Computed example of a mutant assay.
Amino acid sequence: MKKSILIFYFLLLYAMLEMFWWGTVMIQLQPQRMAMVMGEGAVFLFLLGVGAYFIHDSIKREDKLKEQQQNFLMSVTHELKSPLAAIKLSIETIIKRDLDKEQQAKLLRNSLKDIERLDDLVENMLLATKIESKTYSFPKEEFDFSDLVTKITDRLQVHSCGYEQNIKTNIEEGITILGDKFALSSVVTNLVENAVKYSGPCAEVAVELCQNGGKPVLTVSDKGPGIPDDEKMLIFDKFYRVGAENVRKSKGTGLGLFIVKEVLQNHDADISVKDNTPQGAIFEVTFN
C-alpha cells in the first residue's frame, strides 16, 4: 500500500505544480485573464481534491480487504490444523496403545467433536460463498425451532468443567418458525460457538428461546470481554474481528457473524447486540 500511496501523491503533486506553472505563464502573457485563470484553477483544484479523496479511500479499502483476506487464510489454516492434529493424535494413540474400550470410546468421541468442528467450518465457508455470490435461494419450510436450538446447544455443550455444564439453556418448547432450517442452524451454531469461544474457561453461556408478543426471540449471552460500542455494527462485516490481529488470542475466520446477518436479513429477522452485566455481550434475535 505504501508504494501505491507514494506514487499516487507524487502524481497529484506533479499535476498541481503543472497547473500552477501553466496558470502563471497564462497570467504573465494575458494579465486581463487572471480572474478566469484563477476561477478555473479553483474548480480544477476542487475536482482534483475530490478525486484524490476517493482514489485514496479506494486504495485504503482495497488494502484493508487484502489484509483481511490474508488474516482469513491464516485463521482458516489454523482452524483446520488444530482439529486435524487432535484427530490424528487420537487415532495414533488407539493404534499404538493397548487401550480398554472406555478409553477408546473417549478418544473416538473427542475425534467426532473435532470432525464436527471441521464440518461447521466447511459449511460456514460454503454458505458464505453462496450468499455473497447470490446463488443460495434460502428454501423455507415450517419446522420446530425449539428442537433445533436444543440439539445444537447439546452438541456444543462443554463438559470439561467438572460437573458444571458450560451452556445454560432456557428453551420454551413448541416454538415453530417458517424458514431455512439449514441456514438458521448455522445462525444458532455461530452465535453459541462465539459465546463459548470468547468467554473464559468454564464461564457460563446462557441460551434462551421464548415467545415475546407472539414473536420468537433467541438470546445468547456470554461473559467474555464484551464488544466496544464503536465495533458493535462492524462485527457483522465479512472477515471483521474485534481487536487487533497481532494481539488476538481467540480463533475464528470472521465469517460467522457475517453469515448470521445475511441469513437473518433473508428471514425478516432483527439482531441486536447489548452489553452484559457485569461483563460480556448479549445477542438478541427477533423473528418478525
Rank of each mutant, 00 (worst) to 15 (best):
T77E: 11
L11T: 00
K151G: 02
R241T: 05
L257Y: 00
T150V: 02
M1K: 06
S250G: 05
W21H: 15
I167H: 06
F72Y: 15
D114G: 06
E141W: 02
E116Y: 12
T189A: 13
I55P: 09
I7E: 13
K3I: 14
T24F: 08
H78T: 11
D98C: 07
I282L: 03
E164A: 15
K261P: 06
F138K: 12
Q103R: 11
K223T: 14
G23K: 00
K251W: 08
V205G: 05
M1P: 06
V273A: 07
V187M: 01
S221R: 14
Q69M: 12
D147L: 13
V285S: 01
L178K: 11
E172K: 04
G179P: 05
G51I: 06
S250Y: 09
K249I: 05
D120N: 15
P225F: 14
V205I: 06
S146F: 02
V25D: 14
F54M: 07
L107A: 05
P139M: 00
M233A: 14
A42M: 14
D119V: 12
V207I: 01
V242C: 04
I5Q: 13
S221Y: 00
V247F: 12
L48M: 14
T277G: 03
G41V: 11
A35D: 05
C202Y: 01
K96E: 15
T150C: 07
E204K: 14
I27K: 08
W22N: 15
A105F: 13
E262C: 10
A86P: 03
M16R: 09
G162H: 13
K88W: 05
L84M: 04
T24G: 03
V263T: 09
K60W: 10
H267I: 08
L13V: 14
M125I: 15
A195G: 00
C161S: 14
D57Q: 12
I171N: 00
L11S: 02
S199I: 10
K181H: 07
E92I: 02
L178D: 06
E164W: 11
G200D: 00
D144R: 01
K181E: 13
K81T: 10
M38T: 08
D275W: 07
K249Y: 04
S186Q: 03
S133I: 03
P228M: 12
L126I: 08
S137K: 15
V247G: 02
L121C: 07
V76S: 01
G39W: 12
T253L: 04
C210H: 11
V149P: 06
T189G: 09
F138E: 12
S221H: 07
N170S: 09
N190Q: 06
L118H: 01
F44Q: 12
S90R: 04
N71Q: 12
T169A: 01
E172L: 13
D100I: 11
N276H: 03
A15C: 10
V263Y: 13
V76A: 05
F258C: 07
D154H: 09
R117A: 03
L112D: 11
